[in-house]
Design a protein around this nucleic acid. Structure first.
Lengths: 341, 341
DNA sequence: GTGAAAGCGCTAACAG
DNA sequence: CTGTTAGCGCTTTCAC
C-alpha cells in the first residue's frame, strides 16, 4: 500500500475544517459553499490526495470490483472475453479482479474464495467443468451474485453464453446442404463436460437421416493448433472418406488446415474445414476459415448487465436465468461442396 | 459485497469467546490452546466464515494485490504476459487487478489512479507510449512500486523487458549471413514511440556495410494480420527487389505470409519472412515462422521479483534498475538463403 | 489464556 | 453550513 498517502485528516488539519466537511466537500455535497469547497480541493490537490477505496469499501459495503475467472486466457475467445469484460466494466465504474483457473477445479475454488474474501461485488466465471458446479450453485444460494459464461440450462445459476449446440447444428447442416455426407468432428467434450457442440452435430446428422459413424469423430489432445494438426493426421490415416470436418475451435481448424496444405490435400475441395469462434487468425489464415461466430460483445454485455443487476438486488436473489445467444455462420474459403469423385 | 457475511463477532458470540481470541485462534496463534482453537474453527466453518480482506487491508496497510496495466490484451504476447503474471502472482499470494489502456494515455492515467486509490501494493505496466512516462516516473518518485514491462534505459523507472534492439539486430544479421542484401522491414515505431527494433535493424545493416534504403521500410497500419497482408502488398508493388522482410510481430509476419502464398510468391525462396515474439500461430503456420523469441517466463518472473522487492522496501525506494533479457532466434521454415536470380 | 480498548480512513447520522 | 459521534471488521497493545 502506498506509504504515507494523504488522508482526509491531513487536509482537514491543513485547512482548519473538520474531516467531515472535507469529505462532504470532496464528494461535491451541495451543503458546502463554493468558497469552502475550492479551498479544500486546492489543499487536496497539493497533498496529492486520493480517497482510500479500501476504507470506503469497508463502510459502504461495496468494493466496485467484479471478479473474472477464466480457465485459460490463452484461448483466443477467452482473451477477447477478458478484454471486453474489462473494458465494459471499467466504463461502468467497476474494477476487474482477474484470475485463471488453469482448468484446475481446486484452483477455481480457491480463486472464488479469494474474490469472496476480498468482497468482490460479484463474479463472472467460465467454469473448468460445465457439470461440476456445485460450489458455484452454493455461492449463489447464499445470495452472492455470480454469472457463468457457459450455459447449463437448469443449473440454478445465472448464465449468458453462446448457443453452441445451435452453432454446431447450423454448421453441420450447412455442410450437409452443400452435399457433404461424411462429416468428421474433432470432439474433446469428454474432458470438459460440455457436449453441446457434439449434440448439435448429432442432431444435424440425424435430422438429415445420416447415420452417425463413430470413426468420424477424433478427440484432439488439447484445443490448440498442434492438436488440430495431429487430429487431422489421425482422421486421414483412418481413411474413412471424410470430405469435411467441423472443429470446436478455430485453433484446431487451423491445425487441420496446416496438415492438409502440407500434405497436398486441397481445402476445401478435398476437405472442407469448419471452425468455431471466428478468430482473427482463422479469418486471415492462408485459406480463410469458415467459422461459427462468437458474439463476444453481446455475451459480455448481457453477462455484465446481469451481475450488476443482481448486485443491486435488495434481499434474496431472483430465480436464475440463462440466456443463450444464437450464433451465425461466417462462410469463407475453407468450405465448399465436396469435389466429385 | 456479499450481503451479511459472517464476522469475527458472530463467531465470538456463538462460542462465547471474545473477538480477539477468535481472531488469534483463526490465525493460528500459539497462545491459544488446541481445545479452544478447535471449538472456534468449528464455529467458523459452520458460519461459512471468510476473513474480510478489506477490513484486514485497512489495518495492515497492504492489500496483497498488484495492478497490471496492458495496452491491449489481444496482442498474443500481452495475452501470454497477462496469463503468466496472474499465475505467478497468485502463487505468491497476490491478486491481480487487471486493466487495459487501449493505447489511450488518458485511460492509462485513469487506471493508475484507480489502482492507487484501491491501494494496490504495486503496479506492473506496459505503457502506451514508451517516451511519455512522466506520470509513471512521478508515481515512483513518491515511492510507489512500479515496474514497466518495456525498457527505457534512463527513464528513472524500474523495468524488465526483452532487448528488442538486440533481437532485431540478431534477426537481420542472420538474414545477412544467409546472403540477403535487400532486407525490408515493416516498421510502426513512429506511433508507439519505440524505435528499438528499427535501431537493431539499422545497426545490423550498417555493421554489414549495407546502405539503408528507406523504400524498404513500410509502416503497417496496425500490428495485426490484415495490416501485415497490406504491408506485404505495398512492399511487392514498390518492386524494390526485397528478398526478405523482418516484421515486428508474428501477426504482421503471418499477414505477409498469407499475401505471398496467395500470390504465388514462394516463402522462403522468393521472400524470407522473419517474425517477432514466437507465438503459437506463427509456429504452426502453414509455413512455420522464423521468429525472435520472447521469454515471457523470464520477463514476468524478474518483473514480479522486482515489484515485490520494492513493496518490501522500508522507506525510500532504491535507484531504478532496468533489466533487459536477451532474446534468441528461432529458425524455422520461413527463412532461408535467397534464391539465385 | 483471554479480554478490553484503540485505531486503520472513511461515511452517516445527528446536532448545533 | 459545519462539527461531533459512532461504527464498518479487523489487528494490536496492554491489562487482567
Amino acid at each position: 500500500m502506498a506509504k504515507s498517502a494523504a488522508r482526509l485528516k491531513d487536509i482537514a488539519e491543513k485547512t482548519g475544517f473538520s474531516v467531515n466537511t472535507v469529505s462532504l466537500a470532496l464528494r461535491g455535497s451541495s451543503r458546502i459553499p463554493d468558497q469552502t469547497r475550492r479551498q479544500i480541493s486546492e489543499a487536496a490537490d497539493q497533498l496529492n490526495y486520493l480517497p482510500n477505496q479500501v476504507a470506503k469499501s469497508l463502510v459502504l459495503k461495496e468494493t466496485k470490483s467484479i471478479g473474472l475467472i477464466l480457465t485459460d486466457i490463452t484461448n483466443p475467445v477467452l482473451t477477447a472475453v477478458a478484454q471486453a469484460v474489462e473494458l465494459e466494466l471499467s466504463e461502468r465504474g467497476y474494477l476487474t479482479l482477474f484470475a485463471t483457473s488453469n482448468n484446475d477445479p481446486a484452483l477455481e475454488r480457491k480463486m472464488i474464495e479469494s474474490f469472496r474474501a476480498r468482497r468482490a461485488d460479484g463474479i463472472l466465471i467460465f467454469p473448468c467443468n460445465h457439470r461440476e458446479i456445485d460450489h458455484i450453485r452454493h455461492l449463489r444460494a447464499r445470495n452472492y451474485p455470480v454469472v457463468m459464461l457457459v450455459g447449463d440450462p437448469d443449473s440454478g445459476v445465472d448464465a449468458v453464453c453462446m448457443d453452441e449446440k445451435a452453432g454446431a447444428f447450423k454448421a453441420v447442416s450447412h455442410l450437409i446442404e452443400q452435399g457433404h455426407q461424411k462429416i468428421a468432428m474433432f470432439d474433446g467434450s469428454a474432458e470438459r463436460g460440455n457436449r453441446d457442440k457434439l449434440d448439435g452435430y448429432l442432431t444435424a446428422l440425424s435430422q438429415a437421416n445420416i447415420a452417425f459413424d463413430p470413426s468420424l469423430v477424433v478427440p484432439p489432445a488439447l484445443p490448440d493448433v498442434r492438436s488440430g494438426y495431429d487430429a487431422m493426421e489421425t482422421l486421414i490415416r483412418r481413411d474413412v472418406g471424410a470430405s469435411a470436418v467441423i472443429c470446436p475451435t478455430d485453433s484446431l481448424a487451423l491445425g487441420g488446415l496446416r496438415y492438409c496444405v502440407r500434405h497436398g490435400i486441397d481445402v476445401p475441395e478435398d476437405m472442407a474445414i469448419f471452425g468455431f469462434d471466428d478468430t482473427e487468425f482463422g479469418e486471415h489464415a492462408v485459406i480463410s476459415l469458415s467459422s461459427v461466430n462468437y458474439d463476444i460483445g453481446a455475451v459480455t454485455t448481457l453477462a455484465i448487465d446481469r451481475v450488476i443487476g443482481l448486485i443491486n438486488v435488495e434481499g434474496d436473489l431472483p430465480p436464475a436465468v440463462v440466456k443463450q445467444v444464437e450464433p451465425d455462420l461466417v462462410i469463407r474459403e475453407s468450405t465448399a461442396p465436396p469435389a466429385r469423385r
